[in-house]
Design a protein around this nucleic acid. Structure first.
Length: 429
RNA sequence: GGGGAGAUGCCAGAGCGGCCAAUUGGGGCGGACUGUAAAUCCGUUGCGUAAGCUUCGAAGGUUCGAAUCCUUCUCUCCCCA
């Protein structure tokens, strides 16, 4: 049994915790859980932090439970929301639950030992719980004053909160109580925005069973500019689902993380020992231009979320697209399979051969002829070419009105580069 | 209920009859530098190869000409009861 709290401490993963937790965990194997909201069909990079809580928990010898909030998802957590949520249909929810559950399975060890991970869905114990039963068994034990004092509720009193969302914390509180009774769970973990919900559970267990349960939150990751971690500059989430965010995009996102942030992240996501991580950080500080941390981080996370193959492909793709040696010749020398591999995860635009031959200028090709996927308008395309921002097949374009009579790669591809980092593959069929 | 103020491009915010496709700042995008970084600097930021076209909450009107004046409507904010 390793010291879980000590591990989280050096990793910077503790925001708040119920006192006495260290002694409690020292007594022996403990069961703890984290809940995941099925409001989207995929988890994202931000969720990965609380997944890591469970992972480190299991590695310390304890038993982790990943709980999918099939029931709570039907209600909507008011935490951090300024407005009432709109309900998802039950069909969508069931679908989201299933895909999230599948994603969670990847990260924990469900197979072996006394501390093997469990995956549960709170819909299972809520679906037959009557409203009257709930009021008598749960509602009775938590005073309104207590519920109103929560930040998540307080912030919404002015703008409006429905009874339904107000009651949310009771549902999550009951989860904890239920798991305490049936799975011997004594610890709930989550992001720092969940503190109010976690303590309601602790309170309910104290009231109903006279038992001191524990709660622990990890800080919500923010970037240096204050925005939430796990989103691209344009506000797009980095999803764990490869269909929504390609492994290449995820790899690139992590590779581009700032130095300070990389230090924080490596501590959270690295499963290796403290000394190894500290050595890496030191090495990075001596020679930051190597970007050891970013590369390690990108590699570790992409491999963990996707697979080693997917990660290797993302690396190959990155070197060809960004490597300093990547010239036009290298691109033309690439085999078709190689090219498709490199381009596996960049956006593709299709155009017919005849349509291509009818396109009068490169400006049209990049805008209207390709459904404005590359450029929103001809003006924009013209401007960007004028400022040397477009390369086709790695060759810089100068004249916006030149005919697009390029030598196609393997007779059917054009690799368009917009700026330094945006690539598109035009497929001619 | 009474009285004020306002609605301008992604955002903030000038403009108050022609010189306004609309000052400036932020953001975005592109370039240089670099570590595919940060900071900095440069360019650009309605559509259109151009002539020109459509924009300043909505609809009408006055005028040779309106973001700017008039009428109505919609919405937002503030103050007093």
């Amino acid at each position: 049994m390793k010291d879980f709290i000590a591990s989280l401490t050096w990793r910077g993963m503790i925001h708040d915790m119920v006192p006495g937790i260290v002694q409690h965990l020292a007594k022996g194997m403990t069961t703890g859980y984290v809940g995941f909201d099925p409001s989207a069909p995929s988890l994202h990079l931000g969720n990965l932090v609380t997944i890591m809580l469970l992972k480190h928990f299991q590695e310390a010898g304890h038993q982790p439970i990943a709980l999918v909030g099939g029931a709570t998802g039907m209600i909507g957590d008011p935490s951090g929301r300024s407005q009432e949520r709109t309900f998802l249909t039950e069909e969508v929810l069931r679908y989201n639950e299933a895909s999230i559950a599948k994603q969670l399975e990847k990260f924990l060890d469900f197979s072996t030992g006394p501390n093997k991970a469990l995956l549960l869905n709170n819909f299972d114990w809520f679906k037959d719980f009557s409203f009257l039963g709930f009021l008598r068994e749960v509602g009775k034990h938590i005073p309104i004053g207590y519920m109103m004092a929560k930040d998540s509720v307080k912030q919404r009193i002015e703008t409006g909160i429905s009874y339904t969302e107000f009651a949310y914390q009771l549902l999550q509180g009951y989860d904890f109580y239920y798991l305490y009774l049936h799975k011997n769970v004594t610890l709930q973990m989550g992001g720092s925005d969940q503190w109010g919900n976690l303590t309601t559970g602790v309170e309910l267990i104290r009231k109903k069973s006279q038992y001191q349960a524990f709660a622990l939150t990890a800080p919500l990751l923010t970037r240096s500019d204050g925005t939430k971690f796990g989103k691209t500059a344009s506000g797009k989430n980095i999803w764990l689902d490869p269909a929504q965010t390609s492994p290449y995009e995820m790899y690139q996102f992590l590779l581009n993380v700032g130095d300070h942030e990389a230090e924080k992240l490596i501590k959270i996501f690295a499963c290796c020992k403290q000394e190894e991580v500290e050595a890496m950080i030191l090495a990075h500080q001596t020679k930051p231009e190597i970007r050891l941390l970013q590369q390690t981080l990108a590699k570790m996370v992409t491999t963990m979320v996707h697979s080693e193959e997917a990660c290797n492909q993302a690396i190959v793709c990155s070197t060809i697209l960004f490597g300093h040696t990547a010239s036009a010749d290298a691109l033309y020398a690439l085999s078709e399979d190689g090219l498709l591999n490199v381009c596996a995860t960049i956006p593709k635009v299709h155009i017919t051969k005849t349509a291509l031959s009818e396109v009068d200028s490169i400006v049209s090709l990049l805008s209207v002829a390709t459904n404005n996927m590359i450029m929103p308008s001809k003006s924009e395309a013209r401007r960007i070419i004028a400022s040397a921002g477009i390369k086709v097949n790695k060759i810089l374009l100068r004249d916006p009105y030149q005919k697009p009579d390029f030598t196609l790669l393997h007779d059917r591809y054009l690799l368009v580069q917009k700026g330094k980092k945006n690539y598109y593959l035009i497929v001619v069929a």
